[in-house]
Simulated scan of single mutants.
Amino acid sequence: MAQSIQVKRVTVTKEAKKVIDQLREKHGDLMFHQSGGCCDGSSPMCYEDGDFKVGGSDIKLGEVYGCPFYMARDQFEYWKHTQLTLDVKSGRGSSFSIEIPMGVRFIIQSRMFTEEELQALEKQDPLSA
Results as ranks from 00 to 15, higher is better:
Gly50Asn: 05
Lys80Gly: 00
Ala120Gly: 00
Ile5Glu: 10
Leu84Tyr: 03
Arg73Thr: 11
Arg92Pro: 02
Ser128Leu: 14
Gln6Pro: 00
Ser42Gly: 13
His33Phe: 05
Arg24Asp: 09
Lys123Thr: 12
Gly28Ser: 05
Ser97Val: 05
Asp49Lys: 12
Lys53Ile: 11
Gln6Met: 07
Ile108Arg: 15
Ile108Gly: 04
Asp74Pro: 00
Lys89Ala: 13
Glu77Thr: 11
Lys89Pro: 00
Trp79Cys: 12
Ser43Asn: 09
His81Ala: 11
Ala129Lys: 14
Ile107Gln: 02
Thr82Phe: 15
Ala120Arg: 03
Gln22Phe: 08
Ser90Leu: 12
Ser57Thr: 14
Asp125Gln: 07
Asp87Gln: 07
Lys26His: 07
Tyr70Met: 02
Cys46Pro: 01
Gln124Met: 12
Val54Trp: 01
His81Cys: 08
His27Asp: 13
Ser42Asn: 13
Lys18Ile: 05
Lys123Val: 14
Ser95Thr: 12
Ser4Phe: 04
Tyr47Ala: 01
Phe76Lys: 11
Met102Leu: 15
Thr114Tyr: 09
Gln22Gly: 05
Asp40Leu: 03
Gln34Ser: 08
Lys18Thr: 10
Tyr65Met: 01
Arg111Lys: 13
Gly62Trp: 12
Val12Ala: 04
Ser94His: 14
Met1Asp: 13
Lys26Cys: 02
Tyr47Glu: 00
Glu117Pro: 00
Lys8Pro: 00
Gly103Thr: 11
Thr13His: 11
Phe113Lys: 05
Met1Cys: 08
His27Gly: 00
Asp49Trp: 03
Val7Leu: 10
Met112Asp: 04
Pro68Thr: 05
His27Pro: 00
Arg9Ala: 06
Lys8Gln: 11
Leu30Asn: 07
Gly36Asn: 09
Leu86Gln: 06
Gln3Asn: 13
Gly28Cys: 08
Thr82His: 13
Ser42Gln: 13
Lys8His: 13
Asp125Thr: 07
Gln109Phe: 06
Ala16Trp: 03
Arg9Asn: 09
Thr13Tyr: 12
Gln22Leu: 12
Val64Thr: 04
His81Lys: 15
Lys89Arg: 15
Gln75Tyr: 11
Lys53Tyr: 11
Ser43Gln: 07
Lys14Glu: 03
Glu25Gly: 08
Gly93Asp: 15
Ser35Ile: 03
Glu115His: 11
Glu116Tyr: 06
Thr85Ser: 11
Ser57Ile: 10
Gly93Lys: 04
Lys60Ile: 05
Phe106Gln: 05
Lys80Trp: 03
Arg105Leu: 14
